[in-house]
């Protein structure tokens, strides 16, 4: 007698945070629910706490030294590797975005492919930034004087809910050698944590990109007032709420910027500092 084959039960993913190259749950034990357009349950991503943020900043600070001192060529290759991993999982991202956001499958597809191309565009800047932003300065005296740009250190990112904005902001911050703590709102948690899996398999040093999912209303003010964060990309924050974050960030004169465009070297340079060195010339 032929037995009817039972429908297979899916193996679902547990959504956690991405801190220092590992996938911990929120220390707070909190989660929030992400649903599909039709209301179906999708996931319970972690609702990151202030302690999770502090842990992520510690990891980012520790990773900064190595990442910023890696050669530009090396950083460029690792970022390109991330694009390769993204490309291989493009369909997964497309379906996650289509499932959890309000856009159509077709739009999700074009957004993912654009995001991969953007990432490649940014990766290529690693060893070209100095040629564009640096200078040798003809001072009036016996000195060899030049200016170079250096990464600021730890940059926090408050992402919008759009996957391509998320990609732009991270790429622009890390290509120069910054390490980042990325704050991800709402349903973007689903593709963002898949992106973390891409990072985990791309030879990116642990701690360079840390991803916290949860509520920007909670996380962004904590990041703005954190004294060991040097820069803060608040492009994903509602305009009316930006002033309060800038005010909090003034305590350590954080470099706080919001961008209305994705693809621009200005966006990279906003989280870099110019250093000018004077060398005496003589025999």
């Amino acid at each position: 007698m032929a037995t009817k084959k039972q429908a297979r039960v899916d193996v679902k993913k547990t959504y956690k945070l991405f801190i220092n190259g590992a996938f911990p749950r929120s220390e707070s034990g909190r989660v929030f629910e992400v649903s599909a357009k039709n209301g179906d349950f999708i996931a319970n991503p972690a609702l990151a706490s202030r302690k999770d943020l502090r842990d992520a900043v510690t990891a980012a600070r520790a990773a900064h030294s190595g990442w910023s001192k890696a050669t530009a060529y090396n950083r460029g290759q690792i970022l390109y590797r991330i694009a390769e991993m993204l490309e291989g999982r493009a369909e997964q991202f497309e379906s996650e975005i289509a499932l959890t956001s309000q856009i159509t499958s077709l739009k999700a597809k074009s957004q993912v492919l654009d995001a991969i191309d953007r990432w490649v565009w940014y990766a290529g800047w690693s060893d070209k930034l100095q040629a564009v932003s640096g200078a040798t300065n003809p001072v009036a005296g016996p000195f060899f004087n030049f200016s170079i740009s250096e990464p600021q250190g730890v940059v926090a990112i408050a992402s919008s809910t759009s996957f391509i904005d998320f990609i732009d902001a991270i790429a622009a911050a890390v290509v120069s050698g910054n390490s980042t703590v990325v704050l991800v709102p709402g349903s973007l948690a689903v593709p963002a944590m898949s992106f973390a899996e891409v990072l985990a398999t791309s030879d990116l040093p642990a701690g360079v990109i840390n991803i916290l999912t949860g509520s920007l209303d909670e996380l962004a003010p904590w990041a703005a007032s954190h004294m060991d964060i040097d820069g803060f990309d608040i492009s994903g924050i509602d305009k009316k709420k930006r002033g309060a974050l800038k005010e909090a960030g003034a305590e350590n004169l954080k470099r706080i910027h919001a961008f209305s465009t994705g693809q621009s070297p200005t966006r990279i340079l906003a989280f870099m500092e110019s250093k000018t060195v004077w060398h005496s010339v003589g025999v």
Binding site: N137, F143, S147, S274, K275, T276, V277, W278, S280
Partner: peptide, 17 residues
Amino acid sequence: AGVIWANTFNKFDPASP
């Protein structure tokens, strides 16, 4: 540091950021 002087100090010039 934004300005570093090697074997000199406190030098300024309009061409130097």
